[in-house]
């Protein structure tokens, strides 16, 4: 769309923004404007209270007990293993797998969309759109995995999810809150074969200058349905052929896989 030239143009977008009815480029432009405009921020806050009312007006449906259990188990309230039963039961259509994987990507970005004050919103929106578009392409085969990465960096606020297609041997890493590596060093994403933690394959080396942004990194590497992923810090500019440090983030598909076996 053409950039709004009057502030009244932005005012009119606020309602559409709260309803989620703007096109991606309009939403980016509006969010970029929002950070510096208390008036529009107040409008959005009021309109979001209205949409919350719309939400509250829907017919109430009792969620299944598995939803509460899923929230509880992820927060570690129970010592039982996470109920993979629910995840395994989601066998099925490509569309279901794709949407499930996409929901996972969105979850990585949720608070980034909410907290205006923290970071470059335009970059976040671009990353979000790119990640979603890549997610759609990568997950086109129904066998793709969503792998959540955890580890020491997560304790400091980093979040990372890999969407990996074993059919296409390609994927996307969505990462947020990872501090820049020291000068002269980069991060490197590795594809870790099941049972072959000693023989990871280089997926891609990357570095970003800002900690606060959300980034979508596309990569191509040999991927199996059982392939895990890890991120290490390596010498720059191109990284290493094998990891030289312990992973700061890592994960396996068994922990978070949406598709059927």
């Amino acid at each position: 769309m053409d950039s709004p030239v009057n502030h009244s143009d932005y005012e009119e977008l606020a309602a559409g923004f709260a309803l989620g009815a703007l096109e991606p480029d309009e939403e980016q432009a509006f969010q970029g404007h929002l950070e510096g405009c208390p008036a529009c921020k107040a409008s959005v806050r009021e309109f979001e209270e209205v949409t919350a009312s719309l939400a509250l007006a829907t017919v109430r449906v009792q969620p299944p007990a598995s939803l509460r259990a899923a929230v509880r188990s992820r927060t570690g309230l129970t010592l039982r293993r996470r109920a993979a039963r629910t995840i395994r039961s989601w066998r099925g259509t490509r569309t279901t797998v794709r949407a499930v994987a996409v929901a996972g990507v969105l979850a990585v970005l949720a608070l980034s969309l909410w907290n205006l004050a923290l970071r470059d919103q335009h970059q976040i929106d671009q990353a979000r759109v790119a990640a979603l578009q890549e997610a759609v392409r990568v997950v086109n085969d129904g066998t793709a995995n969503r792998v959540a990465l955890t580890g020491s960096a997560a304790d400091s606020g980093a979040r990372a999810t890999v969407l990996a297609s074993s059919l296409q041997d390609r994927g996307v890493l969505v990462v947020e809150g990872l501090p820049p590596p020291p000068p002269g060093r980069v991060y490197e994403l590795w594809a870790v074969p099941a049972g072959g933690a000693s023989n990871p394959a280089k997926a891609i080396a990357f570095r970003f200058s800002d900690r606060q942004g959300v980034h979508a990194v596309r990569f191509s590497v040999n991927i199996q349905p059982t392939t895990g992923f890890a991120i290490t810090e390596e010498p720059g500019p191109g990284g290493s052929r094998s990891p030289t440090t312990e992973p700061v983030l890592a994960g396996n598909p068994q922990q978070s896989r949406p598709g059927g076996a």
Binding site: K41, R45, P63, P64, S66, L67, A70, V71, R74, T75, T86, T96, A99, V100, A103, G104, L106, A107, V108, A110, L111, W114, N115, L116, A117, L118, G157, R159, P258
Partner: peptide
């Protein structure tokens, strides 16, 4: 799908509640 979305929204708060911006 609804379960997945709602679960992830609550867990996004679990992960990042320290950064929740109440002025928003």
């Amino acid at each position: 799908l609804a379960e997945e979305v709602v679960r992830e929204v609550f867990l996004s708060l679990w992960r990042d509640a320290r950064r929740f911006d109440p002025s928003r």
